[in-house]
Design a protein around this nucleic acid. Structure first.
Lengths: 260, 260
DNA sequence: GAGTGGTCTAGACCACAGA
DNA sequence: CTGTGGTCTAGACCACTCG
């Protein structure tokens, strides 16, 4: 590592080199990288420098480490989440009630799985504010979903619905029935007419990192999804948390849509 | 730093502590943190460990460093980009032709500025594929914008329009005229009927990092925006690059929109 | 036990800011 | 010139995997 052409630090240089080598196919997808010791020797730097470079590529989701075994190139292409199709009636019918998530995962040739836990819960204050309910009491039905692709955890999705709406209805059943809970809102005369989503990027919380098997240096998409009735009442807030390197988000809409 | 309750490494522990202290207002927005030496002494760790912890908070955009001066808490709230409103006719009229970006920045009490460079250029191959043009020739008009809020660089936006459409039209003028270039497409009988956006997260390229004043450990939103006519022709692709910690993305759409 | 990666301390040197 | 943060090397120790 004699030259440092771009002026960047050595560990960024090493990271860039390895990134390029992976992109060039020099280390195949799923394949193992040389040990840090070997890389250090080959590049003429200390092992700690290589380790720091690899920690960058790890944070980008380009490689992962099996501790005690070695460092490997990530092989999985990103999951595409089309937010609009997810919630369209046509897609619900086309998918035969399997749900948007199952469609997304199946599209990649992987097997979807999803665990649902329904409870009555205290909503996060941000959610309570949107729904106009108390954030002190168990004022919501919470549908907590943990989602997998081929047994790899890929998403956490927590839906909150005011107890006043969902209490005692089919929304409290684990199996949300044909067409998903969207259809249950329609059954209750509270059809969702408009959807909003807010997207943030942040590091995972400790719990999230554990479930999603992420390092604290990686990032998650934090999507706040809200369903509104035609007269502007928020009836459902869903918080989606997804590893940023695992997903690609897609949106589409008519160009001259009027804000409502 | 005797206790390591969560099992995480010391530098992650230190990062978490400082993150909490900042959230608690112990270090006010815009204020300076103690020196690394002081923090190291106070926490009973080596300065290098504190430095590594701070590099995490830097990557998150929570603090920034003036080299030689010290480390400071970031004071700026995220810029909200509502993708749908941006391109609605109503918003164009309401903003009096100032454009969506100016509206977003003004909403935060900051002063927008934008430099436009128009040229004929070779599009990136991904863009060429969407537009159905050659990626060998200068087959596109490129409108490259560099955008600032109070002289802070906040976005790079490169629009590509097939030369066949834009060549010799008002789209090649630096001043895109009333209603922006969206209105120029309508003038040409190629009104955009549908918009799609794809969102990715990645580290900045060297050039992007330099212009946006980012560290290589930070992340950008990479938004591929495409405008389609009613009969499904892609007439414009715009690549937006924004520091992820500086922006929040918002979308909204009617719940039962038919995919087109 | 040998091999892997993850981390910490220690000491050093550098670049930059400001008096 | 001093004080700030950024990085590198060096050596050490730990946790985990696998034979």
């Amino acid at each position: 590592m004699i030259s440092s052409p771009s002026g960047a630090s050595q560990y960024h240089e090493v990271a860039a080199r390895l990134r390029d080598a992976i992109a060039a196919g020099e280390y195949p997808r799923g394949g193992q990288l040389p040990t840090e010791e070997k890389l250090a020797e080959r590049l003429g730097v200390h092992r700690v420098t290589v380790n720091r470079a690899l920690s960058i590529l790890r944070a980008e989701g380009l490689v992962y480490v099996h501790r005690g075994k070695g460092t490997f190139v990530t092989e999985i292409p990103p999951i595409r989440r089309n937010a609009v199709l997810r919630y369209s009636r046509e897609a619900r019918e086309r998918s035969g009630g399997r749900g948007a998530f199952a469609t997304e995962i199946t599209a990649l040739g992987r097997a979807p799985r999803s665990d649902v836990t329904v409870s009555r819960a205290v909503p996060p204050s941000r959610v309570a504010a949107i729904l106009g309910v108390s954030d002190q009491d168990k004022s919501c039905v919470r549908r907590a979903r943990l989602m997998y692709a081929d047994d790899t955890p890929v998403q956490i999705a927590d839906s909150y619905i005011p107890l006043e709406i969902a209490g005692g209805t089919a929304i409290e059943d684990t199996d949300s029935g044909p067409g998903g809970i969207i259809s249950r809102f329609a059954d209750l005369g509270l059809a969702q007419a408009r959807i909003t989503e807010e997207i943030d990027i942040r590091p995972p919380s400790t719990d999230e990192a554990e479930f999603l098997k992420m390092s604290p240096d990686q990032r998650v998409y934090d999507v706040t999804h809200t369903g509104w009735t035609a007269n502007g009442r928020a009836v459902e807030v869903c918080l989606h948390v997804m590893p940023a390197h695992q997903w690609r988000l897609e949106y589409e809409w008519p160009a001259d849509q009027q804000p409502s």
